[in-house]
């Protein structure tokens, strides 16, 4: 009896409290976001304005609301900030140039190989990001086949090395983020109704005009999503610069890493993280406004 009663009351609680239902369903997500996003962000903000305790040991800081940390952290590392955005932009543009034809071919021209080609695009994810980057270090290194071949063809000199260079860092980032560019592009190209292309042809547009006036505008959401998914992680990336770069190609991620782990200067690391986050947010907002794709998500 008691059980039945309890069950009934639960049913009525559910049916009666329909208004609260969305909140109940949202709760896991909200709790997750609060614990793993809001709290760490608050902690980061709190840390970013601390200063060392006078006479304290390495790594001991106290809250003094020292907002000058932001100015100092930025001014001391503006070179790496600039480099991060430059490399991220280059990697994004390169990835777009490679991914667009690839996605176009898979979506519109691949026929029965479509699924197979898609698997190939995603396949690199089956191995660790780190391992793949280290593999590139081997391939482009003195022990790999690329350097001796290029030297044999007199394309590069005896002293030139492909690793530990800006080229290697940008190439590594382009490679690592390529699937993030390809998949959204594929999704939006695949959705294009073939009849719009036929209609364009019927109206005497040639291939180039059809692409410029129909395909490209219709694939813009994919372009915007792909560039964002590439640019944002690329700007904060430090793995490629650490493994494929040299001391003169360090990015802001490397500075944050060394401030945190090597110098044990948590306030600077926190201030830099915040500055990077805000800079990316501003750039992305401007970009989305300019590209006018509100139906992005």
């Amino acid at each position: 009896m008691a059980l039945i009663h309890a069950a009934r009351s639960r049913v009525s609680a559910f049916s009666g409290g329909k208004a609260s239902m969305p909140y109940v369903l949202l709760a896991p997500g909200l709790i997750f976001l609060f614990t793993f996003f809001i709290l760490p962000i608050a902690n980061l903000a709190q840390t970013s304005t601390q200063t060392p305790i006078a006479g304290g040991d390495t790594g001991e800081y106290e809250q003094t609301f020292h907002f000058a940390n932001y100015v100092n952290a930025f001014l001391d590392n503006k070179e790496q900030f600039g480099r991060s955005f430059l490399y991220a932009t280059l990697a994004t543009v390169l990835a777009l140039a490679i991914a667009y034809p690839l996605a176009y071919a898979i979506a519109l021209k691949s026929g029965k190989f479509k699924n197979f080609l898609l698997v190939l695009v995603v396949a690199p994810f089956f191995t660790s990001f780190l391992l793949r980057t280290i593999a590139w270090k081997q391939i482009l290194g003195e022990g790999g086949f690329v350097v001796p071949t290029l030297r044999g063809l007199h394309i590069i000199g005896e002293q030139t090395s492909l690793t530990a260079s800006a080229v290697a860092v940008v190439a590594g980032m382009t490679y690592n983020f390529l699937p993030f560019m390809t998949l959204p592009l594929y999704a939006s190209l695949e959705r294009i109704d073939p009849r719009t292309l036929e209609a364009s042809g019927d109206l005497y547009a040639n291939g180039i005009t059809t692409f410029r006036k129909v395909t490209l505008p219709l694939s813009m959401p994919g372009v915007v999503a792909g560039t964002l998914l590439t640019f944002i992680p690329a700007a904060g990336d430090y793995v490629n610069a650490a493994i494929l770069g040299n001391p003169n190609t360090k990015m802001i991620g490397n500075v944050i890493d060394s401030s945190f782990f090597k110098i044990v200067d948590y306030p600077t690391a926190a201030a830099l993280s915040f500055t990077l986050m805000i800079a990316i947010l501003i750039l992305v907002t401007i970009y989305i406004r300019k590209s006018g794709t509100d139906e992005l998500v």
């Binding site: 001391p247 360090k250 490397n254 890493d257 090597k262 110098i263 044990v264």
Partner: peptide
């Protein structure tokens, strides 16, 4: 000293 060293190292 570590800050100066890391800075020299590009960090």
């Amino acid at each position: 000293f570590t800050t100066a060293f890391q800075k020299a190292a590009g960090n």
